[in-house]
């Protein structure tokens, strides 16, 4: 399993558009990818799950990936996070 921590720098947090893109990215991989925030963990392949967390500005989150392509999955998700201005 691999994991990485992120601090959300975007003012609006993980909002509609970036959430959809994160889910689309995670879905491309076989690994189980989860998002952890404030003790709750949701499936990053579920748009409803991600949205239900209400991740806001300055939130600290952890992304976990577990599976045969876990490294690629985590890298791709990190890239989307940066591209969407969610984190540095």
């Amino acid at each position: 399993m691999v994991k990485r921590q992120f601090k959300i720098i975007s003012e609006a947090g993980i909002h509609a558009r970036p959430a959809t893109l994160l889910v689309q990215t995670a879905t491309k991989y076989n690994s189980k990818v989860t998002l952890e925030y404030q003790g709750k963990s949701v499936d990053l392949k579920s748009i409803m799950g991600v949205m239900s967390l209400g991740v806001g500005h300055n939130a600290k989150i952890v992304i976990n990936a577990n599976g045969d392509d876990e490294k690629d999955a985590l890298n791709a998700v990190s890239e989307t996070m940066e591209k969407e201005g969610l984190s540095k």
């Binding site: 959809t20 689309q24 879905t27 499936d43 392949k45 579920s46 748009i47 409803m48 799950g49």
Partner: peptide, 13 residues
């Protein structure tokens, strides 16, 4: 409709 396509495949659904 892109949103509908993503949501329809949502594992939580």
């Amino acid at each position: 409709f892109q949103a509908h396509i993503v949501m329809m495949r949502d594992p939580e659904f």
